[in-house]
């Protein structure tokens, strides 16, 4: 689906953040590795903050004067798999988590480029993408 408005972009962002949060919540109980549980718990907390951030962006940065159409951003390009793999071990959970973070990072990076006319939104998206990059590094250390 083409994400042609700021509202549509943010709705999609909220959707994938919620899905990522649900994955990390379930992943906490799918592993007994304390380090990994701590990592996933941190990502759940981070996700909740990000959801609040996105809702704040929607309230505060929808600048009526320059609501220009957005082109070339499609939700089908970014569709993180957020199901817990059946019988997956710790390594698989980590791999799925890295894949989720990569999808999120790529989405926010692309979206920031498309929403340059709302610079505060672009800046916030860049920050979210940076958080995803950090999480990828953190999660990859265990491999």
């Amino acid at each position: 689906m083409e994400l042609g408005t700021l509202g549509a972009v943010l709705k999609f962002a909220l959707d994938i953040e919620n899905r990522a949060c649900s994955f990390y919540e379930l992943a906490c109980s799918a592993t007994t590795n304390p380090n990994l549980v701590a990592q996933f718990e941190e990502l759940v907390q981070r996700g909740q903050k990000r959801i609040e951030t996105l809702m704040r962006i929607r309230r505060e940065h929808t600048t009526e004067m320059i609501l220009e159409p957005i082109t070339g951003l499609n939700s089908d390009t970014y569709n993180p798999i957020t199901a817990i793999p059946e019988g997956g071990d710790e390594g698989t959970l980590q791999l799925v988590a890295v894949a989720i973070e990569t999808e999120l990072r790529d989405f926010y990076t692309a979206a920031a480029n498309k929403i340059g006319f709302l610079s505060e939104v672009a800046y916030s998206f860049e920050q979210l993408a940076d958080e995803n990059s950090e999480a990828i590094q953190h999660l990859s250390r265990g491999f």
Binding site: T5, L6, G7, R58, R59, E60, T62, T63, E64, M65, L67
Partner: peptide, 12 residues
Amino acid sequence: KYLDEARGEYRR
């Protein structure tokens, strides 16, 4: 008006 426009109006 579409939702973003309504949000923009409420921001103002």
